[in-house]
């Protein structure tokens, strides 16, 4: 079982038995996950509603917690409620949006602090790549330019842009592997 699921489920089961301390931990944890989930799915004009949606979802969890079936995954249950609240929000505000068929994994995939840390990691890793490759990776992978655009602005052939990007990524991969080995 996924460790997030295992941890949250344990907290939920304790909460259903009336353990207020576990419940507090659970709700705080979920508030963070939910905020990130809603922020990502609301258009810029509606980002301000994310906190309302978080609170509505937590309220719904509270008043309808009896509907959690203990032999089922907790994350899937909560995700269904969050998704329902999001769709209801769109309907109420007559927002025409498509909610992708995501699954519970996405709600619990990451939280914001991790995303910020990831960005810092990327910057640090890129510093370790030779300057020429670094520039190419930055343009193609982070800024999202196409190979052709980069080739034109740097005066390189498309083939050498691809090779440059590939070498840089290989260097990063080697470094990540090395880093992981060092950690062990």
């Amino acid at each position: 079982m996924n460790p997030v699921e295992a941890r949250l489920k344990e907290l939920m089961l304790a909460s259903l038995d009336g353990d207020a301390k576990s419940y507090g931990v659970l709700l705080n944890d979920l508030a963070r996950h939910l905020r990130f989930y809603f922020m990502r799915r609301l258009a810029d004009a509606h980002k301000g509603d994310a906190d309302d949606l978080v609170q509505e979802t937590l309220m719904a969890l509270h008043t309808r917690r009896a509907t959690y079936e203990v032999d089922r995954p907790f994350t899937a249950w909560l995700h269904a409620i969050a998704r329902y609240k999001l769709i209801d929000h769109f309907r109420r505000n007559r927002i025409r949006a498509t909610v992708p068929l995501d699954d519970a994994q996405e709600l619990f995939a990451q939280d914001q602090s991790d995303a910020a840390a990831d960005r810092m990691d990327v910057e640090r890793l890129l510093q370790s790549v030779p300057a020429k490759s670094r520039d190419l990776i930055y343009r193609t992978k982070i800024e999202g330019q196409s190979i052709a655009e980069v080739a034109q602005s740097t005066g390189l052939s498309e083939a050498s842009v691809k090779v440059g990007v590939h070498r840089g990524i290989k260097a990063i991969a080697a470094k990540l592997k090395g880093g992981a080995d060092d950690d062990r």
């Binding site: 353990d19 419940y23 978080v54 937590l58 009896a66």
Partner: peptide, 25 residues
């Protein structure tokens, strides 16, 4: 109301839920 206030309120209100609550309803 902030989310923290809400969480404090809900935590304060928590009561055990019997496993058969849905069936009973």
């Amino acid at each position: 109301m902030t989310t923290d206030d809400l969480i404090a309120r809900l935590t304060g209100e928590l009561k055990p839920v019997p496993r058969t609550a849905v069936l009973r309803r």
